[in-house]
Simulated assay, not measured.
Amino acid sequence: MDCIFCKIVNGIIKSDIVYEDDKVVAFKDINPVAPVHVLIVPKKHIESAMDLNGEDFNIIGHIFSVAKKLSKDLGIDKDGFRIVNNCGRAGGQTVMHIHFHLLGGRDMQWPPG
């Protein structure tokens, strides 16, 4: 598979991993748009939110649980943070492996762009 996130999950490409368990890997974004910018990626390859099926919905809940833990670990829980999932090309998804951006450490603007 030629998926960059699968390569990170499998240790083929090194990344600055901040969290890992049996379901997900979280690592620092190489092009951060905030002082804290972490990607949370399921180990199972799922292309986008449109490809989720019944057995995948538990992983989404787990991702939000990990985001909550990381927000505390990274010190952004008190002031607030943003969790973003881009879906499809027009939605801004550039890597076709579902992932969630955990952003914090600055005031977020709306609309996001």
Results as ranks from 00 to 15, higher is better:
P32S: 08
P32G: 09
Y19F: 14
E47K: 15
G80H: 03
I76G: 06
D29L: 02
V84G: 00
F57Q: 06
G54A: 11
D107F: 04
I30Y: 04
M96Y: 15
L70C: 10
D21Y: 05
K68C: 06
K14W: 00
A26W: 05
K69T: 14
L74P: 05
C3T: 03
V24T: 12
R89N: 12
A26Q: 07
G113Q: 04
S71Q: 03
L52H: 05
I76V: 13
I12M: 13
G75P: 03
I4E: 06
I17N: 06
D107W: 00
I13L: 13
I8W: 08
Q93V: 01
L52E: 04
E55R: 10
K14I: 00
M50N: 13
M96S: 14
N31P: 00
N31A: 11
I46F: 03
R106M: 11
H62R: 03
V18K: 12
I98L: 15
Q109V: 15
K68F: 10
G11Y: 07
I59W: 05
G91F: 10
V38E: 07
P42F: 10
D73R: 12
L103P: 06
V66L: 01
L103R: 03
K69M: 13
P112I: 03
F5L: 11
H45Y: 05
D2N: 15
I46V: 14
R106Q: 12
S65K: 13
K78P: 01
I63G: 09
D29P: 01
I63R: 09
I76Q: 07
C6S: 10
F100E: 02
F57P: 00
I46A: 04
P111E: 00
K69L: 14
D2G: 15
G80C: 05
N53W: 01
G104Q: 07
L103W: 03
V95L: 07
D77H: 12
K14G: 11
C6Y: 05
I98A: 02
C87M: 11
A49M: 15
T94R: 09
D51E: 14
K72G: 09
G11C: 08
S15P: 01
E55I: 09
Q93P: 00
I63P: 09
I12Q: 15
D77T: 02
V25K: 09
D21G: 04
R106W: 01
E20Q: 15
I8K: 06
I12C: 02
V36P: 01
P32F: 03
